[in-house]
Amino acid sequence: MAQPIARLEDVCVSFGERVVLQNCSLEVPEGSIICIIGLSGAGKSTILRLLDGLLLPNTGHVYLREHDICHMRESQLIEMRTKIGFAFQFAALFDSMTVGENVSLPLREHTTLSEKEIHEIAMHTLDSVGLAHTYHNMPSELSGGMLKRAGFARAVVTNPEMVLFDEPTTGVDPIVTHLLTDTIKRLRKQLNSTAVVISHDLQSIYMMADYVAMLFEGAIIAYGTVDEVRKSTNPIVQQFLQGSEVGPIPL
């Protein structure tokens, strides 16, 4: 396994009374695509927030390379985040800007490229998710699935070292799901970037994932390659993968 680019170590997170993660540990090997699966509300998005330093754990550590983000100052966190892309579950596009401005924003703020180059790159990235024609639209004019793809484009436009995708394929049609899966794979191939993907779409997981981690009741209960996890003897994993109503997972 490659060196981890990011690592959670015995992390606990709770919101008030509600314990979301409990002694959760996870390694993200550099240059791999790792998919996190788990029930809704299990804390998958919370893991991504931790990896981006948007949320600090109550106890435990979050390492990026060898730096513990719990000890970073806000200015260091901000600097660090320029190397990490985050595609949010509900897109979170800035609704006061056009789609094109949303996608060009990180380029405009963090690079010294000319306006023309920025426009070209943004257009190209939007095109790769099939949205070139929406460059001048406002986010409110797009459908949910389109917003998600625009958020996806904004997350990858700077070619970050690691990209965190929160349910990129939920609520998206099968053809676009395929397109997005391909884009994630291509990024890894061209730039050796790391991707952490939350997904419920088992087919696309099987297509792209190097590793699969299953989150259940606050901790990772299964972790391994796609085949390893599929062959897991853990009844919880099996029930989840088969989508069966009967089994140990309480409904």
Binding site: R49, D52, L54, L77, I78, E79, M80, R81, T82, I84, G85, F86, F88, F90, A92, L93, F94, D95, L105, P106, E109, H110, G151, R154, A155
Partner: peptide
Amino acid sequence: TEQIEALKSLG
């Protein structure tokens, strides 16, 4: 709507 978090995530 998570736009503040999105802003932070873009550095």
